[in-house]
């Protein structure tokens, strides 16, 4: 049975779970609860949920070690299916940041604001991949934007439920492809952002970027070629 999260308030319902905001050991905390999904078979639900909590907890720690900012992990409660992590106070999703940047601005003006963020996205994914961490669900909803005290752009990567460790170019190529598609379907200026992301990616993951980008092109071509019958 899931117990009440005392002092926490529901923040939003994400793709996989519900998010609550409150304090844990005196620190601003976000709790992500992967509640029982009644639509799927209980065994399947149990098994997927365990896997995802494990994957997320591991990748949060690993990514931090790779120099990618993630929320600090405070506590894992498998019974309640909950992850307790640092609340990135004052953050918005990169999706919201991009949408807001476009309001009342020309595309060119907006791009001035968005460009450094795009560059930073490429850098963090490059670092992630250099350490063989595959995120698995790269979208602009899963990157948080905030400003440091000195007004520098800080991006925090979240939502690692589908992540895994793999050193193959294929998985890294697919990771980039997932991001490109998410950008293209969500943002009108994606075509301008993605080249900047790739440029930064190459710099941050210089060793492997050639092979990975070749793989990425291949995955992309496969997508376009897919026959669709009926």
């Amino acid at each position: 049975m899931s117990s009440e999260l005392e002092g926490f308030e529901m923040m939003k319902q994400g793709a996989e779970g519900r998010l609550f905001r409150g304090a844990y050991l005196g620190k601003p905390t976000v709790v992500k609860e992967r509640f029982k999904k009644m639509y799927r078979h209980p065994d399947l639900d149990e098994h997927l949920t365990k896997d995802r909590i494990k994957a997320e907890a591991r990748a949060i720690v690993r990514s931090k070690a790779a120099g990618v900012r993630t929320p600090c992990l405070y506590h894992v409660d498998f019974n309640q299916r909950r992850l307790y992590m640092e609340d990135i106070v004052g953050s918005v999703t990169v999706k919201k940041f991009i949408k807001d940047s476009l309001i009342g601005c020309s595309d060119e003006e907006a791009m001035v604001k968005i460009k450094p963020v795009a560059y930073e996205i490429g850098s963090i994914i490059g670092r992630l991949h250099a350490h063989h961490i595959i995120h698995g669900d790269l979208t602009t909803s899963n990157i948080l934007y905030s400003l440091s005290e000195s007004s520098k752009i800080v991006l925090t990567l979240i939502d690692f439920g589908l992540s895994h460790i793999d050193n193959s170019a294929e998985d890294k190529g697919v990771d980039l492809y997932v991001l490109e598609r998410a950008l293209l379907s969500t943002h009108s200026n994606a075509d301008k952002m993605f080249p900047i992301i790739l440029q930064a990616y190459k710099k941050a993951n210089s060793q492997e970027s050639k092979t990975i980008l070749a793989k990425f092109e291949e995955v992309r071509a496969r997508g376009r070629k897919r026959t669709m019958v009926g």
Binding site: A15, E16, Y39, L44, K95, T139, A182, T186
Partner: peptide, 19 residues
């Protein structure tokens, strides 16, 4: 059916959350 439909419902839910 249980497995592949769960995959379809899950990805639909992901898109809904994102959009």
């Amino acid at each position: 059916q249980e497995t592949i439909f769960a995959m379809l419902v899950e990805t639909t839910e992901r898109a809904m959350a994102h959009c």
